[in-house]
Amino acid sequence: MPYTAQKPPRPRTADQLRREIPGWGVDLDPADRPSVPRERTDLDTGAHWDFPERQEERQPRERSIEHKFLPPVFGTSIPLKGLSGKVRRLAYTRYSEARAAHWLLLLAGDRIDAWESHLRSLAGPRPDNPLSETGIPAELHGHGITSRREGRRADLAHQWMDPLVVAGPWVLAVTGAALAVRALWRRRS
């Protein structure tokens, strides 16, 4: 078709579609679409307060500096602790969400947290088990090889990196430690 004002022809008419596809067109009228218009003030949310009662702040709770105050309700999972806690607290107290530094510090905090937690687990009753925690045994009963051979999958180009993300830092750390010990040993002898 040349470039004219016509809409390209449709493969199937409305009647055909209605016959062939269950429910075709039942929400054609925007009035039947629950998120049209985007903002509606006539919905009953179930709230029976103008402003919610305040949850008790049992531990000092970090918050974005873009908030006027600590919101009345918040999650209490895993309070800040250790070095990662210091880095994360700095991200919250110093930088707004508009600053890349805010998010980069939080990501740095995540990496430090993983290290702190692994080391702490090695000293505790239940050390991290990289085999069971990565779920690798699922390769056996989940058809690891045939699943990957089926069709052409774009994610195979980077799946091999996944073990590096998990094991890479450990390999580097152990290698680094071994080199340091060897260097010390050579200096003494």
Binding site: A138, E139, G142, H143
Partner: peptide, 10 residues
Amino acid sequence: GYHLFSSKLD
């Protein structure tokens, strides 16, 4: 379960 889903197996 996470590994199966993440690696799109099975």
